[in-house]
């Protein structure tokens, strides 16, 4: 089972790195959209500092979602999904592997880019570490919840839009606690309770989301 997990994740990573454009697109979207805020809101440092955590996080949510529709789509189009369903390894494990690969290709680059953009938004320096910690705990949850949405909309016309409608409401709790953690750190309070709740969400999503996504995949092929 562990072998199947690494085998599957390895293939998705190799494919994505060879095609290359996916990671670049997510990061470019993240950078460009955050850059729009100082232009739109005005270069007032205090205003930017106040909204920095929220802007970085909302944009990270949207960037994650941008890449979700391709999670199962190419396997669906070329018939690979049939063979994945017929593989001796549990489909849940294969879905988990694909989701982890998705996180490594979107969540991880987002975490690494976030401090640069936080600086652009004039975020107080107390918030940097907590921003990265909150992203480290919460971006895997985003990929996991997103996998359920991607599996549910597989084969649907305009699936990308449908994913947003399904998944964005489920991202709200993640957004609230992630931004609250950064704000707490900036105002000198302890971010610990918020981070613990983010960790709890991850702990719940890790077994539940692959299970739900696998059920949706099986259903979509009936």
């Amino acid at each position: 089972m562990i072998h199947a997990l690494f085998h599957m994740a390895g293939r998705d990573l190799r494919l994505a790195l060879r095609q290359g454009s996916d990671v670049a697109m997510v990061i470019s979207f993240f950078v460009i959209t955050v850059t729009l805020f100082p232009l739109g809101v005005g270069p007032e440092p205090n205003v930017l500092a106040r909204i920095a955590a929220g802007v970085v996080w909302v944009t990270a949510l949207l960037a994650t979602m941008l890449s979700l529709d391709r999670l199962f789509q190419s396997d669906y189009e070329d018939g690979s999904i049939d063979l994945l369903l017929l593989a001796p390894a549990p489909l849940e494990i294969l879905v988990l592997a694909k989701t982890l690969a998705h996180w490594a290709l979107t969540g991880l680059p987002l975490i690494l880019t976030a401090p640069v953009l936080a600086a652009l938004m004039n975020m107080p320096s107390d918030g940097y570490l907590v921003l990265m910690a909150s992203m480290l705990l919460a971006t895997p949850t985003l990929s996991l919840i997103g996998a359920v949405g991607a599996a549910l909309t597989l084969g649907a016309r305009r699936g990308g839009v449908l994913i947003s409608l399904l998944v964005l409401p489920l991202y709200i709790p993640v957004l609230i606690f992630a931004v609250a953690a950064v704000d707490a750190a900036i105002t000198g309070l302890s971010p610990r309770p918020h981070l613990l709740i983010l960790a709890a969400m991850l702990a719940a999503a890790l077994p539940l989301a692959p299970w739900a996504a696998a059920a949706a995949l099986r259903h979509s092929l009936r």
């Binding site: 085998h7 060879r18 070329d78 018939g79 690979s80």
Partner: peptide
């Protein structure tokens, strides 16, 4: 073994990588 009308081949991987993936998934 199921061989459907779709080939389940990834264009970005080499011929042997494609086959090795499916064979490896079956252990």
């Amino acid at each position: 073994h199921y061989v459907g009308y779709q080939d389940a081949i990834k264009p970005a991987m080499t011929v042997s990588e494609n086959l090795a993936f499916w064979a490896g998934l079956r252990g």
